[in-house]
Each structure stands twice: as C-alpha cells, then as structure tokens.
Design a protein around this nucleic acid. Sequence first.
DNA 1: TGCCAGGCAGACA
DNA 2: TGTCTGCATGGC
Length: 277
Amino acid sequence: MLIHNEYFSLRQIADSGQCFRMNRTDDMDGKESYYLIAYGRYLRLTQLDENTVMLGCSEEEYHQLWKSYFDLDYDYGRIISEIQSGDDEFLKKAVEYGKGIRILRQEAFEVLISFIISQNKNIPAIKNCIEAICACFGERRMSPDGAVYYTFPEPEVLASADKQLLRSLKTGYRDEYIIRASKAVVEGSLDLDRLCYCSYEEAVISLKQVYGIGDKVANCIALFGLHQIDGFPVDVWIKRVIDEIYGGSFPKEKYRGYAGIVQQYMFYYMRHLKGAL
DNA sequence: TGCCAGGCAGACA
DNA sequence: TGTCTGCATGGC
C-alpha cells in the first residue's frame, strides 16, 4: 500500500517522542524501514522517497485502521503554511526541519501507561521498560512475516499486576502509579473515551486526578492518547526552548486549535539542535 | 563515575 | 502559590 504525502516522514515520527513502539528495522533495498506495534497488530513501513511511504498492509486494513492512525485525513500543510506566513523565525525553522511529523491516533490506555513510565526517564529507557511490560503482561503473537511480538496489556491485566513484578521490569517508583491508573480505567473513574470528546482543559483536569499524573504527563496523554490537539506538554526540552528562545514565556494561545502540533515541531527541532537526535 | 532523563507527590515557607 | 527534596533506574 503506497501513500503519497508531502508531510509524512517515518523517521521524524519515530523520533518525535510521541510513540515508543515504532523502531527502525533492516532496510529494504537501501530504504529506511520501521516496524510498528499498535492496536494488537504489527506493521512494517518503508520510506521509499521523501513523499512516499509503503505500508505493509492490505488496502482494507489501511482504510480500517492505519489511515486514521497516521492522521492522514488532517491537512498538516495548512498548519505549516500558517506558521511559515507568520513572524516566528524559530518556529519557521522548526517546521522546515520536522514537517513530516504527524500526531498519531494511538490507543489511549497505552499512551496513559507509557507516559506515566516516561517521567524522569530518557526515551531509550522508556522503550525498554515498555517492551519488558508487554513481554511480561501482553499477548504473544506472530506477524505475517514471522516476527514474534507482544501486544500492549489490557487495563484489567495491569490493574491486577503484582507490584514487585512490575518493579522488576524497571518501572522504579512508577509501579504504584501504573497500577492505580489502570484501576481507575477498569473501575470507570477515568473514562478515556469520554475525555476524547470533552474540552482539552477538562481532559487535563480529569487526568490529573489520577495519582502519579501531573501537568506534563496529563498534557502528553491528552495530545497523544486523546488527540486533544491543544495539549501542550512542557518537558525539559520545551522548557529549554521557552527559556532560550522565547525569554521565559511562549504565546501558545496564538496557536489555538493546533498548539500540540507546534509543540512537536519545537521539541523535535530543539533535540536536533542540542545533538540528541 | 556522574549527570541527565518527555516528572511527580509531599513538605514547607 | 512557589520552591525544594526524595524517589528508581538506565543511557551516555
């Protein structure tokens, strides 16, 4: 299945820090290839050229799942044009550098747990920890080309997980956070489906009721798990941008309706400038 | 070996 | 309301 889109870069999405189960694999005919595990499935992807991505799935599966997953109905070009016609020179450079980033429509529960794990960890450590949890608590499956993979565990499984076992998977002090957030989902006090359709502000407030979720993680979950595009997570990298480029305050209200996309361009570009990519 | 990482809760002023 | 401090642990 071939996708032609000017704003669709596998490398930029994989390195944008929004998903942790999309990784580089053996190249295909010298072209960058990735594998992705999401919604219980395994997908192989190859960047054929700057504007063309090949998805290893049928047309039916693409329309059923992956088209939405990669947010391919959304016009990122319009956002980029707006930024490029503005007067923010840093943002213009950030957009030019990361214009292939898209905000994925990931499973909310997976994002909830992944970003609880993410706190005070670097991205490689987060990935390792999530894979360990999937291998321990997920379902073992095999892809059509014979690769073994594990699904992300269901809320009920993590809600009743043994704390010491979780701790042994390098979750550290976050073990209790994971169990309590999973229980909140199972018991219904945290209704992730509902939070997709309420306001961004209400979603963040609700998420912060959960023990272990603060402002930053709540914004990540809102943006990456609920597709609340006004989510604007401020982590150490965005703090650097705000302090070093904007003198301590960033006017995110100027970007109402797509602030989260702007945040991703800034995050990705700052990591590049500081040599973290 | 030491610093840093997509932070948070709790204590305290 | 704002500012510490302790917390686990891997990556570099």
